[in-house]
């Protein structure tokens, strides 16, 4: 603008103070993308140093990936839901019920694919129910989630009955495990999510809807349809995670999936995703967050932090990272949730 340059600007206006420089860096779009990766790398580096290099062992790093798979799968799926401004914390209960029915179906028939099909199918069905409650009955998704979490887990408990756990044959789970089912399914799903999220119409629409629903609707996007797609994508992920959790311990129990909803939310936020979606959303935040949590848990244990403190430290690190990675608002952030 010519007028600006012609105006006599003093040196003070040309040079920024440190705070403004930080703001400039922070508002750079690459910074936001790179930050979670950098933090994950930093955490691994710090623990590597603190454990004298033990943390860099391949087995340790592989362990982190393996431990992050369940939360990572769920978080990747759930980021679809977060993208258009919805919240769902019921996935733990959904996973529990999916896994239970999957195991029951498998134990009744001994057909391995049935375990996967039923788990995924049930998860899809339950997520579709949640979604219907919110799209058709207009209840806020968080409310739906709170209510159905209790209902689903109560039903799961009644289904499992007996000793509180149902085992499946170790041969089956180890076959799936050794056959690399976990990694294949996980990476397959992850890539599917990345592609759908970043390179298809519906993925773009989700983010746009999360940013401004009215605008998106005027641009020909359907909120209801997108919400269904987001819940079903999440349902697929949760269903796979249910299978993972079954083959992880060759059993399903009443505790399977308990508290997972919160863990997933924690991971997703840690991965740099805005809990309320919009333009800053992406599909890989969940995985990055899950890896960060897993690395943190393993690292803190290996460094020898007493278990009673691990949780508190995790909380503080979580707050610090989220603070650094979030845009500071002029006023207080708020959002009607109920």
């Amino acid at each position: 603008m010519t007028a600006t340059s012609s105006a006599n600007t003093s040196g003070k206006e040309l040079h920024l103070n440190w705070k403004e420089r930080v703001d400039v860096i922070r508002s750079n779009r690459w910074f936001l993308m790179a930050f979670p990766f950098a933090m994950l790398a930093l955490i691994i580096l710090i623990f590597g140093g603190a454990t004298g290099g033990n943390f860099f062992r391949v087995s340790v790093l592989k362990g982190i990936l393996s431990q992050a798979i369940i939360i990572g799968t769920c978080a990747t799926g759930v980021s679809f839901i977060y993208s258009n401004g919805n919240l769902d914390i019921s996935i733990g209960a959904v996973l529990g019920m999916g896994a239970t029915l999957g195991v029951l179906a498998y134990n009744a028939t001994n057909i391995t694919p049935l375990l996967i099909l039923v788990s995924v199918g049930v998860s899809l069905g339950l997520m579709a129910f949640n979604c219907t409650m919110s799209v058709v009955c207009h209840i806020k998704t968080i409310t739906v989630a709170i209510v159905v979490t209790q209902i689903y887990s109560a039903i799961t408990t009644l289904l499992i009955g007996g000793a509180g756990t149902i085992d499946i044959a170790y041969e089956t789970s180890s076959m799936l495990e050794d056959g690399g089912f976990r990694y294949i399914a996980f990476f397959g799903y992850f890539i599917l999510c990345l592609v759908v999220y970043h390179f298809t119409r519906i993925g773009r629409e989700l983010r746009f809807l999360g940013g401004n629903e009215t605008c998106a609707q005027q641009t020909g996007m359907s909120s209801g349809k997108a919400t269904y797609v987001s819940f079903l994508m999440a349902g697929l992920g949760v269903g796979l995670a249910a299978v993972f959790s079954v083959i992880d311990v060759s059993a399903v129990s009443v505790e399977t999936g308990s508290g997972l909803g919160m863990d997933v939310m924690l991971a997703t936020v840690l991965g740099g995703m805005s809990i309320f979606g919009g333009s800053r959303s992406n599909a890989y935040a969940g995985l990055i967050g899950a890896l960060t949590v897993a690395a943190l848990n393993k690292g803190l244990l290996m460094v020898g932090v007493p278990s009673a403190f691990i949780q508190g430290i995790r909380g503080v690190i979580f707050l610090a990272l989220v603070y650094m990675n979030s845009e500071r608002r002029d006023l207080l952030p708020s959002r009607m949730q109920f």
Binding site: T256, S258, L301, Q311
Partner: peptide, 23 residues
Amino acid sequence: IFSEVLKDDAAVKTFIENCIDSG
């Protein structure tokens, strides 16, 4: 090495793996 409160078998497994990594 003491664990946190372990919610389910998957958590136990994770804890055991982490213990093994810690030697």
